[in-house]
């Protein structure tokens, strides 16, 4: 017989045992290992995906921050440029103001220097002219300058035009104060008496006199009465000389009109100056 039922039974038992053994030692461990590996791979994939998403988020955040940084930098740059321009304008304006102030101060200083120099020149010229004139008159003509000036002043008073004379007479008719005689040099008594007599005769004045001596008249004599003045000095000479010197210093052509004026006055001036600016100068 081909079938042995004991063998069949034994083989069934053997097969069932083999199934148990292989399930115990083969299928379960291998499948568990495969499952564990798949879980690890899946976990790794999930982690990688999470890392990728996190990296993408980080990248997006970085891009946003970078764009924001670029915008802020551009804004700051614009602000800085604007502030720099404003500061530059302010500095330019301050520099211009300082330069203008400096130039103004320089001009003022130069004007002061010019005035000082002009006054010094005028003073020295006055002194020199007066000294030269005195010496020249004494050496060449044996004349005294002060006496000659007093004589000339008296002659001028005598030869004054009628209109001027009457005007001064009107002033001296009711004087407020004494007639003040001002001269560069001290007048001796006989000259004082001569001047007082001449003024009293020509202008009908019998009041008091006072005498002053000062350098500003420049070798001249002036009679002041109630704001009017009759003077005889070399002021116009000196003014023409001063202007010539100034023109020479400033490299300007000499003022012809001033020379012509000085020549027309004959070298002297007799001024009757009213207290107000409306009064006319009197030239002798």
């Amino acid at each position: 017989m081909l079938i042995d039922w004991f063998t069949v039974t034994a083989q069934i038992v053997n097969f069932l045992i083999l199934v148990w053994l292989l399930r115990r030692f083969l299928y379960r461990p291998v499948l568990d290992a495969i499952d564990a590996r798949e879980q690890r791979v899946a976990a790794a994939m999930t982690e990688a995906e999470a890392n990728k998403e996190a990296a993408e988020r980080e990248r997006d955040v970085f891009h946003q921050r970078n764009e924001e940084f670029v915008r802020q930098r551009a804004a700051l740059l614009r602000e800085a440029i604007r502030e720099v321009k404003a500061e530059r304008e302010n500095l330019y304006a301050a520099a211009r103001r300082e330069a203008e102030d400096f130039r103004t101060r320089q001009q003022e200083a130069m004007i002061d220097d010019c005035n000082t120099l002009k006054e010094e020149i005028l003073r020295r010229t006055r002194e020199e002219v007066f000294a030269i004139a005195r010496k020249a008159l004494a050496d060449l003509a044996g004349a005294n300058l002060e006496q000659a000036m007093v004589d000339t002043f008296l002659r001028r008073c005598r030869t004054m035009e009628a209109g001027e004379r009457s005007e001064l007479q009107a002033v001296l008719k009711s004087p407020v104060g004494p007639v003040c005689i001002r001269s560069t040099f001290p007048l001796p008594d006989h000259q004082r008496q001569a001047i007082e007599r001449e003024i009293g005769e020509n202008f009908n004045y019998g009041g008091r006199f006072c005498y002053e001596c000062g350098p500003d008249l420049v070798s001249g004599i002036a009679v002041s009465m109630d704001g009017h003045q009759v003077a005889w000095n070399i002021t116009d000479y000196l003014l023409a000389l001063e202007q010539g010197i100034i023109d020479l210093l400033l490299d300007h052509p000499p003022a012809d009109g001033r020379e012509a004026t000085a020549a027309a006055t004959g070298g002297g001036t007799v001024m009757a100056t009213p207290p107000s600016s409306q009064g006319a100068d009197r030239h002798g």
């Binding site: 081909l2 079938i3 042995d4 063998t7 069949v8 039974t9 083989q11 053997n14 097969f15």
Partner: peptide
């Protein structure tokens, strides 16, 4: 190669 074995498997 034994019919007993194949029969056993078939019975399983």
């Amino acid at each position: 190669g034994s019919l007993s074995t194949t029969a056993a498997l078939a019975l399983c």
